[in-house]
């Protein structure tokens, strides 16, 4: 086999594994969310299908497939069909640049636990994140429904507002590692012997909070405010098209957690990870699980922000603080260290 074939097969296997893991992750995220929220509210949660309700996601999947697929009469057919696809693809590909374990040399062949190691990995995250909004906008617009339209407009306004602070709070780790490659950022945390969340506490908190806003998660789930907008931009969707929006949302949660872990919490770093690299996957997943739990926990405990509070928090607090954080980090790096 020549080199190109090896690279293509290598990438295809990794991409397939990543997609599979993310899809399974999505199925069990829905289960975990229902269980954890039930626990917070002193209920039992799903417990009928399978032991402890563990087969609930499979039953939900069957239900979604069998439901009637409806489309509003006035809907723009092409865009109505495209919107769920445009939403799910960025969610599935965004994890491609995140390394989940250090390189592992087996029989002289180096296994890299990352689908694509870009030297502009951080920018790739931003680029894919900014594309993901289109699905939401188009779903709201193509449905020809006032609820969907309002939900779509709110989502767009929110995502645009928070994207600036989100992007700026990635700059801290970039400056500390002096690289845009996510591998280099993890290596820099290893070299310094400290996670960047302790060197950049403001950046870390901002990144997590604005990440929640980017995800339209509670307490920033205005676009889906059930009481006012039914289900927001995907009100008119049913069956598997609805399922795709649902999937994209949960996979994005996993992706944002992965980003926070890589940029601020040492990625795959942990004891003995350099001796036995696959251990990195376990550390990485454990950290991601912790963040996912935190997101569900926040949803279970915090009330939703009002729309104007959400906007003024984004523009008047998060953005200036993120800018000052970048400035301060740069000054400290150049003049103090």
């Amino acid at each position: 086999m020549n080199e190109v074939t090896v690279i293509i097969i290598d990438a295809a296997i990794k991409a397939a594994v990543m997609a599979l893991v993310l899809l399974t992750g999505f199925a069990y995220m829905t289960y975990a969310e229902r269980k954890v929220i039930a626990g917070i509210q002193v209920r039992r949660g799903p417990n009928r299908i399978g032991p402890l309700g563990l087969l609930q996601p499979a039953a939900d999947g069957v239900k979604l497939f069998l439901k009637e697929d409806m489309m509003p009469t006035g809907a723009d057919k092409l865009m109505f069909n495209l919107a769920p696809i445009i939403t799910s693809i960025p969610a599935l590909v965004i994890m491609a640049v995140i390394p989940v374990a250090p390189d592992w040399i087996v029989n002289g062949y180096t296994v890299r636990f990352v689908v694509a190691d870009l030297n502009v990995g951080v920018l790739y995250l931003l680029a894919i994140g900014s594309i993901a909004v289109y699905g939401i906008v188009l779903a709201g617009w193509a449905s020809d429904s006032k609820y969907s339209m309002m939900g779509g407009l709110r989502s767009t306004a929110q995502v645009i507002s928070y994207e600036l602070a989100f992007g700026l709070s990635m700059v801290g780790p970039m400056l500390l590692a002096q690289s845009m490659s996510l591998r280099d950022i993890v290596h820099a945390q290893e070299a310094r012997g400290i996670w960047f969340m302790f060197l950049q506490p403001i950046g870390f908190l901002l990144f997590f909070i604005t990440g929640l806003a980017e995800l339209n998660r509670a307490p920033f789930d205005m676009p889906e405010a059930e009481q006012e907008l039914t289900a927001g931009y995907f009100t008119e969707y049913s069956s598997m098209r609805f399922g795709m929006f649902f999937m994209a949302e949960y996979i994005k949660m996993i992706a944002v957690s992965g980003m926070v872990v890589t940029l601020y919490m040492g990625g795959y770093l942990g004891p003995f990870v350099n001796q036995f690299p696959p251990l990195g996957i376990a550390y990485f997943s454990a950290k991601v699980f912790f963040l996912l739990f935190t997101m569900i926990w926040i949803r279970g405990t915090l009330p939703r922000l009002r729309y104007d509070q959400l906007m003024s928090f984004g523009w008047k607090f998060a953005l200036p603080v993120a800018m000052l954080n970048v400035l301060a980090t740069a000054i400290v790096l150049v003049y103090v260290m």
Partner: peptide, 30 residues
């Protein structure tokens, strides 16, 4: 030039065009 490519997507395809689509939808001027 991957850097240029990513900036192109983030700034043009992402930020600027999302604003365009947003305004078109907001004004109902499609």
């Amino acid at each position: 030039a991957p850097f240029l490519a990513m900036v192109q997507i983030t700034v043009y395809a992402g930020a600027i065009m999302v604003l365009f689509v947003f305004v078109i939808m907001l004004l109902g001027a499609e």
